[in-house]
Design a protein around this nucleic acid. Structure first.
Length: 618
DNA sequence: AAAAAAT
């Protein structure tokens, strides 16, 4: 079945309010650069037009063109922040650092009608030459489990609600099909928006990717640029806190995929600089977050009231590591005959993250953290190769703890929503580069951010919601590497006890007996997060449509099975461009320079569970 | 109750 059978072919983008230079009105399908050869720009009617407008008029075309070329053709695979002594692994050695065992028998649940079968290799999917080349450049050898299932579904034009563990390659799972789909319809590909009198024209992106934080949008943009290198597919990012002018200029150069945070996008739509009329692909990253109480009205407005095509003509993909039932119900408004996909233990952390919970009184938290950091430091598990991310509850608390840590000789940065964007980015960068191997963060950093070398996540203040906990600890243990998560549990956290215990049991973690007792007594309050999963260690039943009161459909398939991945055939985790450090063997993480679990707390930790590399753990 | 997201 061809693409066009299942999805309405987009018409040519409107030209009423945009001017498309004649030489761009027909593009060939195999252009490897967005504009074809440079000679196209050596002459032509566009240069004969007088300068006008705001100085971005026709006379600037040549300059814009050059600038654009430089920005899009710059090789995105160069890693500016690569740590010196680590090298990108060569082809053939990829996978060396992956904990293959952890991905054996990974549970997979799919439900919905006519589910396209999963693939085992990228070669089985025809993503096209340019994308295949980029997959090679990214050193992705095999698709990750979520990619194996999600990509065929997306390529078949189907709507998708996908749950996959943190750090399992979700970004690529929705980017590849979008880029591939856009390339299959070269006629619809974007051309520069004509900057007319009174300020710019309207950009008509074909795909929209929304995410809940600015930093995450940036990260998705960076990833997507790698995936779309030399495909001619143009990707622009738009988010708040940065001058809108440059973002608007980027839009004028043409946009196929717009990555955005909601507020700035709405602003641009209201300014009539972006139209959603031509959107064919919509992806919500961290979809449950996007649809929770604070965000939902804004997202609903964007998706339902700002000119975007309806589900059906539009293909919608929702991704998250967690998907509460109530949110699934909300999300189904945006979807049409969708497939539900869950890879890994839904809403659980990966087995790669060792979770510890310490009982610490509020007043003792700082001292406890200090001793923990000293122990790490003495163990060599502190520094730019072993970053520690500390989550706190409030913005004020983040500033206070950052200050206190610095005063006590631990260079820390802090990131939260009260900082201006430049400070936020500076904090993140100094953390990533190891200038400050400590980052104190609010939930702004809880989701999606991929920071290599986060060896330890400390929940200085535990979140109220177990899902937030899942996302927070997911900042470590990424791309098949193991990590450590330590939580400071105080009396305030009683309501979380039950769901925390359930989660830890599901992840085969050792649960302290005091916590089990708390969980049992707190269950009297009837509170278990939203009380919906982690029960009985059984997997499945996550698609709310499968609960009996919803399941009345006839042509409805429900599949629950364990994907068996032979060890040697296991996946090469998302690799080098995004995660340039996979050459580091897992064991080395704990054996040298890593966290020795016995060194980080007052109690000896005796982990002996699957999924954790034994070395260093005794 | 907090956090995030436009100016």
């Amino acid at each position: 079945m061809s693409w066009n059978d299942s999805v309405t072919e987009p018409t040519r983008r409107p030209t009423r309010s945009t001017y498309i230079p004649p030489y761009l009105r027909t593009t060939t399908s195999n252009n490897t650069t967005p504009f074809g050869s440079q000679t196209d720009f050596s002459s032509g009617p566009r240069f004969t037009a007088p300068n006008r407008g705001r100085g971005h008029g026709r006379g600037r075309w040549g300059q814009n063109r050059q600038f654009h070329d430089r920005s899009t053709n710059a090789n995105p695979f160069d890693l500016s922040e690569k740590f010196d002594e680590l090298e990108v692994v060569e082809d053939g050695n990829v996978g060396q650092g992956i904990n293959f065992d952890a991905y054996e028998d990974i549970p997979v649940e799919t439900s919905g009608s006519d589910i396209p079968p999963a693939v085992k290799t990228f070669a089985e999917i025809d993503l096209g030459k340019a994308l295949n080349e980029n997959i090679r450049r990214c050193k992705y050898v095999r698709p990750t489990p979520v990619q194996r299932h999600a990509i065929p579904i997306a390529l078949a034009g189907r709507d998708l609600m996908a749950c996959a563990q943190t750090g399992s390659g979700k970004t690529a799972a929705f980017c590849f099909p979008i880029i591939s789909g856009i390339m299959r319809n070269p006629k619809s590909m974007s051309v520069p928006v004509w900057g007319g009198r009174g300020g710019g024209g309207v950009a008509y992106p074909l795909a929209l990717i929304l995410s809940p934080t600015r930093e995450l949008s940036c990260q998705i943009h960076e990833e997507a640029k790698k995936f779309s290198y030399q495909t001619g597919v143009k990707i622009v990012v738009a988010y708040g806190g940065a001058p809108i002018s440059q973002q608007l200029r980027n839009l004028e150069k043409g946009v196929d995929i717009l990555v955005a945070t909601p507020g700035r996008l709405v602003d641009m739509i209201e300014r009539e600089r972006v139209s959603l009329r031509m959107i064919k692909y919509l992806a919500l990253d961290e979809a449950d977050r996007m649809l929770d109480m604070g965000f939902e009205p804004q997202i609903r407005r964007i998706v339902e009231q700002m000119g975007m095509p309806r589900p059906g003509p539009r293909q919608t993909m929702l991704f998250s590591a967690t998907f509460p039932t109530e949110i699934q119900k909300l999300a189904s408004d945006f979807l049409s005959n969708y497939i539900f996909l869950a890879v890994g233990r839904v809403g659980s952390s990966t087995d790669l993250i060792a979770q510890k919970v310490e009982y610490v009184q509020e007043m003792d938290k700082r001292n406890y953290l200090m001793s923990l950091l000293h122990a790490q430091s003495a163990n060599g598990a502190y520094g730019k190769h072993a970053l520690t991310l500390v989550f706190v509850e409030t913005k004020r608390g983040a500033d206070a703890l950052e200050h206190w840590l610095c005063m006590n000789g631990f260079p820390a940065a802090a990131i939260h929503g009260d900082k201006v964007q430049m400070e936020r980015e500076r904090a993140l960068k100094s953390f990533k580069t190891g200038v400050t191997p400590l980052l104190v963060a609010t939930d702004v950093a809880a989701r999606g951010l991929d920071i290599p070398h986060v060896a330890h996540v400390v929940n200085f203040d535990l979140p109220k919601d177990i899902d937030d906990y899942v996302h927070r600890i997911g900042r470590t243990g990424r791309a098949g590497k193991s990590g450590l998560a330590t939580a400071f549990f105080s009396d305030k956290n009683m309501p979380l006890a039950k769901s925390l215990v359930e989660l830890m049991l599901e992840a085969k973690q050792e649960v302290p007996s005091w916590l089990t007792q708390y969980a049992e007594s707190s269950s009297a309050y009837g509170s278990s997060g939203r009380g919906r999963r982690y029960g009985g260690g059984k997997f499945g039943g996550r698609d709310y449509r499968n609960s009996s009161k919803y399941n009345s459909g006839d042509d409805y398939n429900y599949t629950q099975y364990a994907d068996s991945y032979a060890v040697s055939d296991s996946y090469a985790a998302a690799t080098s461009s995004a995660f340039p450090y996979d050459a580091t063997p897992n064991s080395a993480y704990y054996a040298g320079g890593g966290i020795d679990s016995n060194a980080v707390g007052s109690h000896g930790y005796n982990f002996d569970q699957e999924g954790i590399v034994a070395s260093g753990w005794d």
